[in-house]
Each structure stands twice: as C-alpha cells, then as structure tokens.
C-alpha cells in the first residue's frame, strides 16, 4: 500500500538510485549535469576542488556539508556567477565553462540565492513577468510599439497568475516585493525562477530564514518541481529537510566531494561524520598511539635536558 502513496516521479527517481555505489563521483544512469575536475582558488585557498560528480535527471539531489565546504562557491561556478580556474561541466551535454550567467539560465539551469533577491521596488507581478524568456518587448525598439508585445505580455501574465496562485501569493499580486515577509520572498523567488521554464532548478539554502509555518509549504513546492519533471539540486543545512525531500545526497567538505548516498544512510557514513565532527573525535586512543605519544614526550624532555647541560 505504501507504494501507492509515493508519487510516480519519486518512485522513478528512487529506482534510478537503487544499487548505486556510495563513492564520490559515482556514475548515474541519466545525468543532467556532469562536472569534471572543477577547481576554484582564492589566492592560496582552494575553495572548490571537485573531481567528478553527476546529478541524476528528474531527482531531488541535496548538496550538504559543513560551513566553508565550498557549496555556494561550487553553485556559483556551475551557474556562471563566478569563473572556475580549471575544469569543465556539461548541462544536457552542453559545455558551460566560461558561459555567462544569463546564458546558463537561458539553457535551462536556473538558480535562487541564499540571501533572497526579491526586486523590492517592483510589484510581485512585475517580478514574475521578468522571469519569462524571449520577451519581444525587452528589445529596445519593439518596446516603443506596445502593440508588438501586448499579446505576449498577456500570456505571460496569465502564466504568472497561475504560478502565484499555486504559491499562494495571488493576494499579494500588486504589492511591492519589498513588503513581503522572508518566507514569502523565498516563495516568490522560486515562483519567479519557474517563469524561466527551467529543467534544472538550483536552490541555495531554500529554508534559510523561513518561518517554520512556511517550511512545510516550501517543502511541498520543491517536491512538486520533481513531479513536474524538473530536476532539483539544493544546498541545505537543515538535515530534517534533506531527509524529508531528497532522493540522493552529495556531501562536500573542504572543497571536495567526499561521499554520496541516499539520505537515510548518508549521515551514518564515517566519512561524513568525520567531516562534520572532525576525525577521531570520539574514538578511544589505541595502545600503540599511547606508546608513541609517550616516547615523543620523553624524547622531547631528553633533548631539553641535553640543551641545558
């Protein structure tokens, strides 16, 4: 009976992951995004050094890791907001290294931001309309002839109204986006990203700063994206959320992908525990280690005595 309550796409996504290896960079049956040897250095600091990673089409994949693991930097590389020093990545087989952010979005890979970027002095509806692609009226000369873009604008408005209704923002239609609450802004940002018509939605900490009452509705919306056939890759700290909605988890630490796996078992992976809590944080010291430390200390003492003599 349980299988009936699981939506079809979730079942398909889980089936795709069944029996996959837990190693970082494991090959997926149908990857939408393939990343190879991406490196980003800031001076002497290597923020990102990802050898190989794949994101399965039609799944919800979580990207987790301790603070400073390079998740957001990695996101910025992939979406063209920052340039990678080395490496390559392909979205639907199309190479995206060096492609500017707006072209990445047009290719169907749309992101949201950790700090929500609602366009404050535009109304909610204008925010939504902005997301639509190939607008005739966005050309300078055609903009001067309202007749050339009116009809398309009506179609865009209709689509935006449907999305706003789904995201329960229809009552706020004509309010300034700046007057929305933090959670509503997240919803607006997600809805606006959908106006682009993406294949891969990249959410950077979708739950950060969201009132708990809105969390469930946001989670529901993310799951809906998969049901509509989109792929979701998201960065998140909240492990409950990760367990709840993701089909697969990729773990980053110190710029590297250190483990991958299904959400229910990934947190018990020793590599992940090490990354979050530090290696040997609770392992008892072995007899050999004890002996070694003792000898080191004695040697140090002896050398000090010799120096004084």
């Amino acid at each position: 009976m349980h299988a009936d309550t699981t939506p079809a796409r979730k079942a398909a996504a889980l089936a795709a992951f069944a029996g996959l290896d837990r190693e970082p960079g494991v090959a997926k049956p149908d990857p939408i995004l393939v990343v190879d040897k991406v490196v980003r250095r800031f001076g002497g600091l290597t923020a990102v050094d990802v050898d190989h990673v794949e994101v399965q089409r039609g799944s919800i994949t979580a990207l987790i890791g301790p603070n400073g693991a390079g998740k957001t930097t990695f996101f910025n590389q992939l979406t063209g907001f920052d340039s990678a020093d080395e490496g390559s990545w392909a979205f639907n087989g199309k190479q995206l290294k060096g492609v500017p952010a707006h072209r990445v979005a047009r290719a169907g890979m749309v992101r949201t931001f950790q700090l929500t970027k609602a366009l404050s002095k535009l109304t909610v509806m204008e925010n939504m309309r902005l997301g639509a692609q190939n607008q005739r009226g966005e050309n300078f000369f055609r903009a001067l002839i309202p007749g050339s873009w009116r009809r398309q604008e009506d179609e865009i408005t209709e689509r935006a109204e449907e999305l706003l209704e789904r995201f329960k923002l229809d009552a706020k239609r004509d309010d300034f986006a700046g007057s929305l609450s933090g959670g509503q802004r997240k919803l607006l940002e997600m809805a606006r990203a959908l106006m682009v018509g993406p294949e891969l939605v990249m959410l950077d900490e979708p739950m950060a700063g969201v009132n708990p009452a809105l969390t469930q509705s946001l989670l529901g919306h993310v799951k809906d994206l998969r049901e509509e056939g989109m792929t979701v890759l998201f960065v998140e700290h909240d492990m409950d959320m990760v367990r709840d909605i993701s089909d697969w988890v990729i773990v980053m630490a110190q710029g590297n992908v250190i483990a991958e796996g299904p959400p229910d078992t990934i947190m018990s992976d020793p590599r992940v525990i090490d990354a979050y809590l530090g290696a040997h944080h609770d392992a008892p010291m072995s007899a050999e280690e004890f002996e070694e430390q003792l000898q080191e200390a004695e040697a140090e003492l002896e050398s000090e005595i010799e120096e004084k003599a």
Partner: peptide, 27 residues
C-alpha cells in the same frame, strides 16, 4: 513608452539587484 514596457521592467530590476536579473536569463 519605454518604462511601461518589458524593456523598462528589466532596467528597473537591474537597479534593484542585477544578479537576480542575470539569474533570470537577461544580459
């Protein structure tokens, strides 16, 4: 005419946050 049009909308959005506009596929 321009500021009533989608062209003007992109301009006003850039004033608010240009990264957001970039993420929506505008040059």
């Amino acid at each position: 005419l321009l500021m009533k049009s989608p062209w003007g909308r992109v301009l006003k959005a850039i004033r608010e946050d240009e990264d957001a506009v970039r993420s929506l596929g505008k040059n």
